[in-house]
Each structure stands twice: as C-alpha cells, then as structure tokens.
Design a protein around this nucleic acid. Sequence first.
DNA 1: GAATAAACGAGACGGTACGTCGCGTCTTTAC
DNA 2: GTAAAGACGCGACGTACCGTCTCGTTTATTC
Lengths: 201, 201, 201, 201
Amino acid sequence: MSRQPQPTPRPGGRSARVRQAILTATSEQLIAGGYDALTVNEVAAAAGVAITTVYRRWPTKAELAAAALGELAATANPMPDTGRIETDLRALLAQILGLLRRPEIARLVRAVAAIDPDTPGADAARVAFWQTRFAGSASIVTRAIARGEIDAAAEPEAVIELLVGPAYLRLLLTGRPLDAELEAESLRRTLAAYAPDTETT
Amino acid sequence: MSRQPQPTPRPGGRSARVRQAILTATSEQLIAGGYDALTVNEVAAAAGVAITTVYRRWPTKAELAAAALGELAATANPMPDTGRIETDLRALLAQILGLLRRPEIARLVRAVAAIDPDTPGADAARVAFWQTRFAGSASIVTRAIARGEIDAAAEPEAVIELLVGPAYLRLLLTGRPLDAELEAESLRRTLAAYAPDTETT
Amino acid sequence: MSRQPQPTPRPGGRSARVRQAILTATSEQLIAGGYDALTVNEVAAAAGVAITTVYRRWPTKAELAAAALGELAATANPMPDTGRIETDLRALLAQILGLLRRPEIARLVRAVAAIDPDTPGADAARVAFWQTRFAGSASIVTRAIARGEIDAAAEPEAVIELLVGPAYLRLLLTGRPLDAELEAESLRRTLAAYAPDTETT
Amino acid sequence: MSRQPQPTPRPGGRSARVRQAILTATSEQLIAGGYDALTVNEVAAAAGVAITTVYRRWPTKAELAAAALGELAATANPMPDTGRIETDLRALLAQILGLLRRPEIARLVRAVAAIDPDTPGADAARVAFWQTRFAGSASIVTRAIARGEIDAAAEPEAVIELLVGPAYLRLLLTGRPLDAELEAESLRRTLAAYAPDTETT
DNA sequence: GAATAAACGAGACGGTACGTCGCGTCTTTAC
DNA sequence: GTAAAGACGCGACGTACCGTCTCGTTTATTC
C-alpha cells in the first residue's frame, strides 16, 4: 500500500543518540556500583529505551559492559610533559593513584579485572581501555629515552608497568594501602631500575 | 528450664567434616570455572549436604567463596632458598608465572580481584590469601639483605611487589602476554632497582 | 527516550491463556488437597508456566489461592424454583449438603475459612465466592415473600443463613455429622422461624 | 548384663511442668497470630525448653496445636441461668458474639476450622474444644424444655446450633458483620423456630 | 545412697517450599 | 514492516520453618 524506501543507516540519527544514551547509562551504573550492580533493566530505564533495544545491539550484559568500558577509554587524562622524566613520572603516578583511591574508580578497575577473557569482545575492550592509557603514558618514556634520561634498551611500556604494577597489585589483590610511601618508593625504584648505564659496565 | 553447662564443641565431629566438604567443593568449583560459575546448589550437591547447611555457615555466596579462598592460602608453595638472591627471585618468579599461565589459576586470581571489599569477611580472606604467599616470599629478600645483596633500606615486600606487579597487571588488566621476556625483564629491573649502593653516593 | 503511548491490553492473547491455566491448576490443587497441599511450584508445573510468572501476577500463595477461589464463584449451581418455598429450600439444602459431604469440597470450604482476613484481596475473594452463592439463594426467598409464604419482614439472606448455618458449623467446628436428621431439622425449623404471621399478633 | 526396672511415670515432676509450659506457650502464640504464625521454634524458646523436647511429645506441629486447643477447652465461660429461656439465650449469644468480635479469638476459631480432619488427634481436639462449650450451652435449653418454654421435641444442641450457626457462618465464610441486628435476629428467629406448640395443631 | 533408665538441652542437619532478582527471549501492538 | 512495551522462561539466590539426629547432661526412680 505504502512504499518503504530503504532507509540508509543514519550516522547522526536516532540510532546514534540511542547508542550513546545506553552507553552513558551503562558507564554511570558501572561507576556507581561496579559490574554486579549493573543491570540491563535499569540501564534501559535510565537511557529511556526498551530493554529489547539494548539487547539488539549488545547480545549480553558482558558485552554491553565491555562496550561502555571501551567508551570510557576515550576519556583520556592529559599526559604530563615537563621536560624531565622524574617530574613526568611523578605527576603520572600521582594522577593514577589519585584515581585509584576513589572508590568508584576502584570499582571500575575491579570490574575490568573480573572480565572473563572468553567473553566475546570483552578482551578487546579491556585491551583498548588500558592500552589507550598506557600508550599515552609510554610517550613520556619515549621522550626521556631521547633525552638520555632512561636506559635506551628499555621498552617504554615496561617502564610504566614497573611504575604502576605494585599499585594495581595492592588495589586488586593484597589490599595494602595506596599511600604516599608507595608513591615515593615506586617512583624512586623505577627510576633506579631504568637509569642509563647504571647496570652496564 | 534451667541453664545447662556449655557442652564442649566437638572438633573432629560431623560438623568439621561437613565444613571441609563444603569448602573443598567450593574451591574445586572456583578453580574449574571462576566465581560466576560457582553455584551454591552445586556446591551443596558435590559436598553431599543440604543447601541450607551451606547457608547456615556462610550467609552469602560471596562469603563462601571468600572462606574457600582463605583455605587455599594454606596450600603454600615451597619457597626457594639457593643462597643467592638472583636465583631465588628467578625461581620464585618462574613459579608464580607458571601458575598464572594456567587458566584455572588465572580464574582464581580474577575471582579474588573481583571481591567487593565491602563483603563481610571477604577482605580478610583476600589479605590472608595473599599475605600468606607474600610473607613467604619476603623472607627471600630478608635473607638477601642480610647477605648484602639487596639495598638494606628496602622493605622486603616492596621488592616482591615490584617483581610480580607487572605480571599481575598484565594478567588482570592489560592482557599482555606473560612471556619469557616479561620474566627476564622483571627480574633484571627489580635487581637493578634494589641493588645495594646503587643510588647512594 | 520519550514517553510511548500506552498500548492497549490484549484480551485474548497469551497473557489471558496463561492466567487461566494458572488459576485452573490452582483450583484443582485446592480441590485435591486443600490450601496446605497447594504449592506454587506444582501449580506452575501443571499450568506449564514458569514459577516466576505465577509470582509476577500474584505476589503470594495466599493471593493466588484467593484468586482461584474467586474464579470458582463463577461456577454457580442452578437454583431450584418449584413454586413452593418448602420444596425450594429442601432442594437447596440437599444440594449444599451433598456438596459439603464430599471431602474435596469440604477441604475447599476449610481453605476459605482459614484465609487470613488481612491478606490483600483475600477477603474480597471470600466475599465474592460466598455472596455469589448466597445471592442466588436469596432469590428463592424473595419469591416466597412475594407469594406470602415467608414473613414479609424477613431479610432473604438471613433466611438462608439460618438454613445452612448449622451445617457449616458442624463441618468446620464441631465435627458433628451432616446427616439426614440435620437436613430435616434445619429445613423444618427455618420454615417455622420465618412462617408468616407466626409471631405477630 | 544389668536389669532394667520399669520406672513408673512421675505425675507431678519435671515432665508435667514442661508439658504445661509448652502448651501455654503454644496457646499464646495461637491466640496472638493464629495457626500459621505458630512456630515450634518460638514455642520452645518461650517455654524455655529445647525443640527436641517439644517434638518428643507431639510429633507434628498440628498435633501440638490440637493439644493446646484442647487445653483451652477447659477455660469454660459461665453459663447464664436467669430462669427464662429468652434472657438466657440472649446472654449466651451476646457472650459468644463478644468473643467472636475479638480478633485474637477470631484467629483461634479460624485455626480450629482449618484443622485437617485427617491429622491424628486433631479431630478429637476439635470435638473436645467445641463440645465442651456446647454441652454447657445445651443445659440452658434442657431447663427451658422442663419449664415448657421450648418445644419438647427439640434436641438441645440443635437449638444452640440454630442460634449461633449464622454468626460462625459470617465469621468464617461470608465476612458479613457480627452486628447487633444479627444478634437480635438470631435470637428472635431461634425462639420462633422452637416455640412450643407453634407448629403443632 | 548408688545405679540406671528416661527425659532433657544444645546444636547442626536434611529437606521442602517460599519468594526475589536478573538475564535474555518472545509475543503483541502501535507507528 | 519495524521497533517499542511488556510478559515470559529460566536459573540461581537467599529465607523460613518443619522435623530428625547425635551426644552429653540432668533428673528421678528403684533397689
């Protein structure tokens, strides 16, 4: 009776708005209560869409969470660039610890850590989420190597891993405090570990 | 009608057997499929007890899991003691990475990381689980300090944290591989970071 | 994102079928074993629906039972109309006693009697269940009054109450037999109590 | 090896005290909340005995409730004796309706009505509970017959049944009010039904 | 007054049913 | 014809209460 013109996918149309609303609502719930407190029902309600709509796009709750976490990766923090590796790393570490000390961020990190690697798309989201952050961080090291402040043989990401590894270990597993002493020690030892010519003859 | 003297608890009785059966079954399920695959129903069935009996002792699934993880802490691995810090740490790191590469252990670690700190008794279990392991590890460092192989100002546990932090970071968050290069680099840089007199004048 | 117009309820759809199946299964179980033998689990199984579906509609077992009893009210028995009050009442009483002598009906009546008046909707169901029956019965009396066979000052329902009260009293409380003597006596005394002009001067 | 002399039961000893405490606690709970709110656990706690002790004497909750209700039968109300059947019955009816209007008594009556006749000992308790009451009431009628106020052919208990039947019917089934009009009507019609020479020639 | 049988106290346990929560699917209706 | 709305299936969680069992202790009766 009536003609149905094949609607081309609308990039800026309703779909995009719906998608964004859902992901935003998901992120908020993840931040508010972690993965367990995330419910598809409430996400749909908060986003003002039907539950079916959510499931049409992300088949499982895990994939929805992964997608939302992936989105959060975009919210990158500014990377310090002071011209000296020590102050750069100190600022970076202070920024990260400042985040990890906030309960809602701690919940988020826990949620990411809990993701089953077998979940489709989940691992991709995890990698994206964290490599984005680490990629930015690594540039700090790259510049320091160019300046001769860091052992030229160092892999930039490994430096960052050594710097923040203990902090995440405490947060996720041992429960030891994320205090100023950890901050100072991590910075000092990382610099020592990667000092140029330190362990060469 | 009148107050009776408190009968002594029976340590080797049925209660103890039931408790052990439940915790064993829980551990097995945790290892087999992680926290999400853990169901109280199946634990009860595997332990040969009624579901209500499980709930009488551990009010929630989370507390049950925490208790089981706490029990697993008793299963301590032998700590290497070769007389040289480098070989000690190399053996320790190889041991830990060997464990973390096994999917069922990875699941367990994930389960621990996911524990909500607010769960009653959960944090205690986490601390117990990990500090048991770390306490053993720290003795390696203590001996090395006595031998002058490690900076005397070092806190033993901090050395271990620096050694294994990157490995756990990769396992839980970044998803990068737990390969031989990580193993070599972690060992080398940790030794450098804590070498005696290295950063003193 | 925006409010949708309220879709009209579908009267003949799946919901209605499910509802009917559940109530039918409930009624059968009530008849078969009374209120205590009624289990939501078996109702759901017999109705071929999920347990949660039952609970979605009737939050408690009591309300489910009440609803089912309310449905049973629709199954009205034919009211005798012979043109004479004595034969009408005799037939009615015989019919009721015939029902009450059946164990499954006795269980049903017991179930209704046991309903806690505080249960939401329970009282409504009770009133509906019984007033339906009594309303039909009362018309017998109304006609008799018109024919001058019954004291014109009588309230029709009170006549029925006097007629069947002793029978229910025996069934529910005293346990005395519902025998032919009760039948004869109840009829005779009720007629005497409401005979026209009997107690007027 | 040893001989077991059969010890005679001790009538006034601890057993009797325990028994009384349990039955009293049971009655209180029945009055307070009806049969469903009666829990063996709380009865035991209130009586200051172990749960096992309760079960040793009454194998099921139903039998316990029956026993307690049987005890309550002993609490007989004084029967009016004014010398005139009309005032006697009016006082009796007022007394009974006064009781039935109290919620806790209504609960008790409901509990009795709900007793499954198949429960061992339950029916005995019911019969005892109510026939005690009715036996007392019947004496009123017996005296009235002797005075010629009541049809000599009447069975005393049937008179009482007619008098109070409608009230119990309303309480247990129809939910109609136990008001003054019911009181007046029940008395008036019962007297009419059993008036001497009314239906004789 | 000592032996001894019966009853009691305490606590955990097995089991059934209740009612809840949340995920993911399916039907029905409206646009 | 597509998508929103909502009911549904399903599985697990956690709770309440009934009735059983074991074992140690107390009571009271009998010799």
